[in-house]
Nucleic acid binder design. Structure first.
Lengths: 216, 216
DNA sequence: TCTATCATGTAACCAGTTACATGATTTT
DNA sequence: AAAATCATGTAACTGGTTACATGATAGA
């Protein structure tokens, strides 16, 4: 671990290398395997760009052509294998992903930080929708997880357990905020409502602009 | 809400529109304001591409030139204002971000779903590092939050509260997994260790490939 | 005087996406 | 005979990033 800046940062590239560390495969087989193992749910994969990405990984010397097969009249299938450099890069990348929390700017956080542009009463409605979506998603994932655990070793379901945990945590938080706004416990909601209705920035808010809130 | 696929999805574009909904500004002022309000921490902003993005938003008709000023010998400053279409798009986008949880594929989830390639004993070390990083990050954010709350209305710190909550939740989960692996409560760790050491897929695992774990 | 910061932008690049094209084989 | 899916790829595009270029003014 210590790659200041990775030349490749497409997660599909990582998945490709991880799979090829088991054995050589041809691109279509890679796609199949990822799908069969349900990795689409936890890895951002765009199968449409698979061939482009594989070529790219090859260009970096992380994978290489291991064999070219052909059966009958079908198109050739090129088997790719992981190179030594590829194995090193993949393991290093994985280690970094596990050990170092990445700043990822989830979109909901983005929205929260600009939430003032939406009228508070609409926000309540929107948050309620989100909470419901999160809760039903939790229920689904929980169910899937129960089924998965019947056949698969824990090792293969940790990402799903994590997802469930984090979605649950989010739902809890959203419900909390929701209640605070709805019950008027948030404070300053009147200023907020007036601002979104009239477009005029309250005097109080304007004063805040000047000062640095992190100053002593 | 109902934009099947947004042409613009750079969060900086959203932030630009949100700011311009208050009043017309020139690009540099937009950057300044975002920085002053500490939005860099919750919105993925690349100030290097600000002018490119503003031009882009303009091309879509969401903002337009409101005025061109000049003082002394300085370069002209172009004031941009939000158009009606821009206001609609911005509010619609915001509403969607709040109400509909987005699938975002956090990198840690990606890593978890490929975790089998790393030796379990190394994973323990890496998770420990992550847990520590998360915990100290929580401490920092908590401190910042205390300071912020002294001057700012709740409305302006919700995103920070959310961040703190979610980071805490993650830390808890990581600690949990950590303990399970370290204490041998996870199960199948021997297979896993052997696999990463020898590269040979255990017979048990190979059998799993065939079947669909979601079948009845 | 020198540095920092104000304030503007452009040009080149690039990974990744989209959309299309091709034809074999298997299944219905 | 038609539909599905196996299996390959290419070409064009495009949003966004990087890196650079410019010059004014304010402050140390």
């Amino acid at each position: 671990m210590g790659a200041e800046r990775r030349r490749l940062r497409n997660p599909l590239a990582l998945a490709v290398m991880a799979l090829l560390s088991e054995r050589p495969m041809h691109p279509y087989e890679i796609a199949q395997t990822l799908r069969r193992r349900g990795k689409e749910n936890s890895v951002k994969i765009n199968f449409g760009s698979l061939y482009t990405v594989v070529r790219n990984v090859e260009k970096h010397g992380y994978v290489e052509v291991a064999d070219v097969q052909r059966q009958g009249n079908r198109p050739e299938r090129t088997l790719y294998g992981l190179t030594e450099a590829g194995r090193r890069e993949m393991l290093d990348w994985m280690a970094e992903l596990v050990a170092v929390p990445a700043r990822e700017y989830p979109l909901f956080e983005t929205a929260l930080s600009l939430i003032g542009v939406l009228p508070p009463d609409e926000v309540v409605v929107l948050l309620e929708k989100r909470a419901e979506a999160l809760e039903s998603h939790c229920a689904e994932v929980g169910e899937v997880l129960r089924l998965l655990r019947r056949t698969l070793p824990r090792l293969f379901v940790v990402e799903t357990e994590y997802q469930l945990h984090m979605t649950g945590a989010q739902a809890t938080w959203v419900r909390g905020l929701l209640r605070e706004i709805a019950e008027g416990r948030l404070g300053g909601v009147d200023d907020w409502r007036r601002f979104t209705a009239t477009g005029e920035t309250p005097e109080k808010w304007r004063e805040l602009e000047g000062q640095d809130p992190l100053a002593p």
